[in-house]
């Protein structure tokens, strides 16, 4: 008798898909991060009082802000890349260049935002 389907989350993550697969994984993490942020935001408003304030303190923390900003920005830029490639399939031949361009846009924008968040949080 054969085994079950030969796949699991861990085995999938270990597949060496290089740059394109990394963007796919980060896109999923980004989406989950945004859902987490919206959920805790709604929960904080719904609970109110001390519970709400406790949750507020979590998502207003600079570490959480750095994480959420990464999720939102990466999800948006990567989503834009995929949308453009899907609408103009001829450009799919340049998918590697498109990924380099995506990082070239993402890194400085994210870097500036992280710098401002850190300066505000730690600079006093």
């Amino acid at each position: 008798m054969a085994s079950e389907r030969n796949v699991s989350l861990l085995r999938g993550l270990r597949y060496k898909g290089e740059g394109p697969m990394l963007t796919f994984i980060l896109h999923r993490i980004g989406g989950l991060g945004i859902v987490l942020f919206v959920t805790v935001h709604i929960l904080a408003s719904f609970l109110g009082g001390k519970g709400g304030q406790f949750i507020n303190a979590i998502y207003e923390h600079w570490l959480f802000q750095i994480f959420v900003y990464f999720c939102a920005l990466f999800h948006a830029i990567n989503g834009l890349r995929i949308t453009i490639l899907d609408l103009w399939p001829a450009l799919l031949e340049y998918q590697r260049e498109a990924i380099w361009l995506e990082w070239a846009v993402f890194l400085p924008v994210y870097g500036i935002a992280v710098f401002i968040i850190l300066r505000t949080a730690l600079g006093g």
Binding site: Y15, P20, M21, D86, P89, A90, L92, Q95
Partner: peptide, 26 residues
């Protein structure tokens, strides 16, 4: 298809698979 590109990179015949799928989508 989430345009991951693993297929194109894995193809031993170097078929532009994601491009073909993109053309089907359009």
């Amino acid at each position: 298809c989430h345009t991951v590109f693993n297929c194109t990179m894995a193809c031993p015949r170097e078929i532009q698979i994601t491009k073909a799928i993109g053309e089907l989508k359009m």
